[in-house]
Amino acid sequence: MTDALAVNNLTIYFEDFAAVDDVSFNVSAGSSFGLVGESGSGKSTVLRAIVGLAPSSGGEILLDGKPLATPRSKAFYRHVQMVFQDPYGSLHPRQTVDRTLAEPLAIHGIGDGERRIARALDEVGLGKGFRFRYPHQLSGGQRQRVAIARALLLEPKVLLLDEPTSALDASVQAEVLNLLEQLRRERQLTYVLVSHDLAVVTHMCERLLVMQKGQAVEELSAQALAARQIGTAYTRDLMAASTGFKRE
């Protein structure tokens, strides 16, 4: 069986600096895969390379076993969508929720907009009352729900999540994570989740790849991590850091 997404020896250079250096991983259909690392680890750059926002300098990216064309085709964007980190930056400040959600439908010539938009808002837990609001009339969590609704309108199979909850309060994070899990179950989506938070990644993903300074450190399953079956010192450091401060 071919993987929904395969990244083989991906390398990305910005000028002379290797932002991503020979990174490989496979994501099977319907599963959820995590990329963990600190800032500068290249984890977000991998996602941006998959969707064509960052140029790849080497290696290949396969979707359902087929290499991707550059620039990405319109059909690709109906197959793969992305949710960004900053809910305050990912919505156009002068467009209502309605306009934002109508845009993907207009671009792809999908009819029946009224019903689809209403359903999408319903699905992410925002009622009709939010449809004609501007982003500044929404909270961070509500904005992120709109961004998720926008990504789902094209009915993609693969959803890339770039730190979807790191700008949100803890209680709102829980709500958004629950929503993402529920959507994955209902739509049999494949997730690639990028986060700096080990706890979030182990909660959401079956397998994860730890990255540091553009390189893959180790790939392991969430169960192995929980059972402390860790192979590298760096992952252990991350693990220790996530439990809080310890006084010597």
């Binding site: 080990l198 706890a199 929980a226």
Partner: peptide, 11 residues
């Protein structure tokens, strides 16, 4: 509401 490593609470 915080996810914890090694705990299986869904949702």
């Amino acid at each position: 509401c915080l996810p914890k490593i090694g705990e299986d609470r869904h949702p």
